[in-house]
Write a protein that binds this DNA or RNA. Structure first.
Lengths: 209, 209
DNA sequence: TCGGCTATGTTAGAAACTCTAACTTTGACA
DNA sequence: TGTCAAAGTTAGAGTTTCTAACATAGCCGA
């Protein structure tokens, strides 16, 4: 699991009245708690205890609890996107490996940070409240569609490319949740993630429309 | 959305001290609230208001809040399973239509009862607390594997059948969540569920291993 | 250097929620 | 008919989110 271990100089017991870095530290505390207890068992109070401030302090930085979660969500989406871009760059343009790599990052992120993954893709009605969050999803997905179209050798993203991209998304999305919800044991000897991703990528990307 | 409208004779304002049907009525109230507000915004107090009893009353029937949700979960799984069996029976044995029908029920259930669907497949660590709930999942999934094997014309469920069944599950699972989480708009003119399910069923079930 | 403004802390407390304890009612059954 | 247990009730402890009113201090202009 993803952990940031570097602690700011004021991480424990500050001596000044003002904290100096509270907003960032609250977001980080929130992220850790979300991973530890799950998004629905996260409490503001606990984050405050963690950061060593009163329970009223966060409300100088966030309108309400959900805004803290949204901050973590946003930050998580950015991180996930960066991983996707980095993964793709390691393979030649238009190759199937790029597609597979995208799937690996998707599932990998879910397993590394299930809490944040849930925030990103779970019940997301309140994403609308966050500035820019609603735009990130389609933009990131557009990137995937572009890769799919590139593999197919099309000029642009046509209907067929969209459909195939959607099948792939659906697949890795479902797989991610089944894994983090422990509906399927990844330790099962017959479970081979890379093989499975390759299988699916082939079945979806190759042959007739 | 699924609604039970029949009201028991004591549904509103009972005159007797004892309720008579509280357990069942609380489960039903819980189910409705879970659909209306989502599983994580459900509160025992509200269910009590709904049923017209004090907030302490449920604790005669359930150990804690989660046990009420588990009851709804269990009941939902049973209902989902029945729908699956019923759907399959409408098509000839070993036909691809049976496979597609299973997918339709899966996604259909998610759309009809997103709240309960989330309970069944969401963060399910506490399913262990419920007697029998942990066994239901594998049993229902075994049924699907059987159908897949039947289509393939195998004697039993071999490794290949298992892998294909898993791909299908993963797909409909992901699709369900993307739909109920509004990551993809089902009203999009290019979105055709039946077509998509058939596409995927073909790609997964037909041709080389 | 000083005075004040504003950002960012604090404490106190309201309202909601989960769950327990102790009490009450009532149906069932010996 | 009398008693017990099941299943309600009220009271309240402890936690939570969030607001209001107050406190501190960093910064900035005179």
């Amino acid at each position: 699991m993803y952990r940031i271990m570097e602690k700011t100089e004021k991480s424990k017991k500050r001596e000044s009245y003002h904290h100096g870095d509270l907003r960032a530290q609250l977001i980080e505390a929130t992220r850790v708690l979300v991973e530890d207890k799950g998004p629905d068992h996260f409490s503001v109070s606990e984050a405050c205890r963690e950061a060593g401030v009163s329970t009223a302090a966060p409300y100088r930085h966030f309108k309400h609890k959900d805004e803290m979660l949204l901050a973590v969500t946003k930050e998580g989406m950015d991180r996930k996107y960066q991983r996707m871009v980095a993964a793709v760059e390691q393979h030649p343009e238009g190759s199937l490996e790029r597609i597979v790599a995208l799937g690996q990052v998707y599932v990998g992120f879910a397993r590394d940070e299930p809490g944040v993954f849930r925030l990103i893709f779970g019940n997301t009605r309140d994403h609308k409240m966050h500035e820019g969050l609603m735009e990130d999803g389609p933009r990131h997905y557009g990137f995937v569609e572009g890769e799919v179209a590139a593999f197919l050798g099309r000029g642009g993203v046509d209907e067929d490319a969209k459909e195939r991209a959607f099948m792939l998304w659906t697949f890795v999305h479902g797989l991610s949740f089944l894994l983090i919800d422990e509906k399927v044991s990844s330790t099962d000897h017959s479970f081979d993630l890379d093989r499975l991703l390759l299988q699916v990528a082939r079945r979806v990307m190759i042959d007739s429309a």
